[in-house]
Computed example of a mutant assay.
Amino acid sequence: MKIFATAILALVGFSSAAHSADSVNVYSFRQSFLIEPILEQFTAETGIKTKVVFAKSGLVERIKREGKYSPADVVLTSDFSKLLQLKDESLTQAFSNTEINQNVPAYYRDAQGHWVALTKRVRNIYASKKNIANPAELTYESLVSPEFKGKICTRSGKHPYNLGLIASIIAHKGEAAAETWLRGVKANLARKPQGNDRAQVKAIKEGLCDLSLGNSYYFGKMLTDAAQKPWADAVNIVYPNQSDRGAHVNVSGAAIAKYAPNKANAEKLIAFLASKKAQQAYSALNMEYPVNPAVKPAKLVASWGEFKEDTLPLTQVAEYRKSALKLVDKVKFDL
């Protein structure tokens, strides 16, 4: 009992120390090189110091474990699924900020105000330059065409990026149509789903397949990596469904922790991250698209061309993620 009491007192002390008029505590899934330069700029302009915990995984569990003594103010995520998880597990609080609302379109904000997107990445189709004649005509639906039998590569259907795409198809076309589509894609796979998005482009370069699904920012990463540039050079980056609903978009984002000791500073930080100045740098560091429509993408990203994006609110897409996971299991997509 004495040990337990000591632990609680330590947590209380830590929580008290975390509360400061000139600081904000950040739990970040985003890599340090992506966020630290922006946080330094925020401190220079506002005088508010940032205290950051970086981790690729485990931050949600940490916040749950810390409970009301958690020092976390802002949680920065590298994908949409973590934003959903944080809200679903009641680890966030609602906030409303005029500046943020002006800079981030409503379809990239939670309807109840629990999270906001900060950068965008498209779920592209990558097409072999050698073997796909009219890549601009490709749609997600065309991936089930018999002409692509044995020509598609993709990572696991259960990965958050693919679940988001499947959920968007359910939202637009219904669960039955999405199941038919998923079965069709599975029938056209060149191999069992495996690896990450870049591995699929490598497989196209090696002649294992002609088409793959992959996030847009990986194209930039491959183009700027000497070892991987030949993979990127072997494909066209395609923005699907440009003649109808537009390409599916996933996001990184931010939320304010439920027990944030510095909520006002948390709002200031998120507002800064959504501002024109920060958006330009924040999106460019990972070759993503800025979520602020007034900001142009980085030069390399812009060179891939303009595109029409699916503007269905992500909160609506999110409603179907569990159904998407069930469909992946139902059709045995990964087996």
Score class of each variant (00 low, 15 high):
residue 8 I to D: 10
residue 9 L to Q: 09
residue 23 S to T: 08
residue 27 Y to I: 01
residue 31 Q to L: 14
residue 31 Q to W: 15
residue 39 L to A: 06
residue 41 Q to R: 10
residue 45 E to H: 05
residue 48 I to W: 02
residue 51 K to D: 15
residue 53 V to G: 08
residue 65 R to N: 15
residue 66 E to N: 01
residue 71 P to T: 08
residue 73 D to I: 02
residue 77 T to W: 09
residue 78 S to L: 11
residue 80 F to N: 06
residue 84 L to S: 13
residue 87 K to M: 13
residue 98 T to D: 14
residue 102 Q to T: 11
residue 104 V to H: 05
residue 105 P to R: 04
residue 108 Y to N: 09
residue 111 A to N: 10
residue 113 G to H: 08
residue 119 T to Q: 08
residue 127 A to T: 07
residue 129 K to Y: 14
residue 138 L to R: 03
residue 145 S to D: 15
residue 146 P to L: 10
residue 148 F to G: 04
residue 149 K to T: 14
residue 155 R to V: 05
residue 155 R to Y: 14
residue 158 K to M: 12
residue 159 H to A: 12
residue 170 I to M: 05
residue 170 I to G: 04
residue 171 A to N: 10
residue 172 H to C: 02
residue 172 H to L: 06
residue 175 E to D: 10
residue 178 A to S: 03
residue 182 L to G: 00
residue 182 L to V: 00
residue 185 V to Y: 01
residue 186 K to P: 05
residue 188 N to C: 05
residue 190 A to G: 10
residue 194 Q to S: 11
residue 194 Q to F: 11
residue 198 R to D: 03
residue 199 A to L: 09
residue 199 A to Y: 08
residue 208 L to P: 09
residue 216 S to K: 01
residue 217 Y to K: 02
residue 219 F to K: 00
residue 223 L to K: 03
residue 225 D to T: 01
residue 227 A to D: 15
residue 229 K to C: 09
residue 232 A to H: 03
residue 233 D to N: 06
residue 237 I to T: 07
residue 241 N to F: 13
residue 246 G to H: 06
residue 246 G to E: 14
residue 247 A to S: 11
residue 252 S to C: 12
residue 254 A to S: 11
residue 257 A to S: 12
residue 266 A to D: 07
residue 268 K to D: 15
residue 269 L to P: 09
residue 271 A to S: 12
residue 280 Q to N: 14
residue 283 S to C: 06
residue 288 E to L: 03
residue 290 P to S: 07
residue 293 P to W: 14
residue 293 P to A: 10
residue 293 P to Q: 13
residue 296 K to L: 13
residue 297 P to L: 04
residue 298 A to Q: 08
residue 299 K to L: 13
residue 300 L to P: 13
residue 302 A to P: 08
residue 303 S to H: 13
residue 305 G to V: 07
residue 317 V to M: 05
residue 317 V to K: 00
residue 318 A to D: 09
residue 320 Y to E: 00
residue 326 K to Y: 11
residue 330 K to L: 08
residue 330 K to H: 14
residue 330 K to Y: 14
residue 330 K to P: 07
residue 332 K to H: 14
residue 334 D to Q: 03
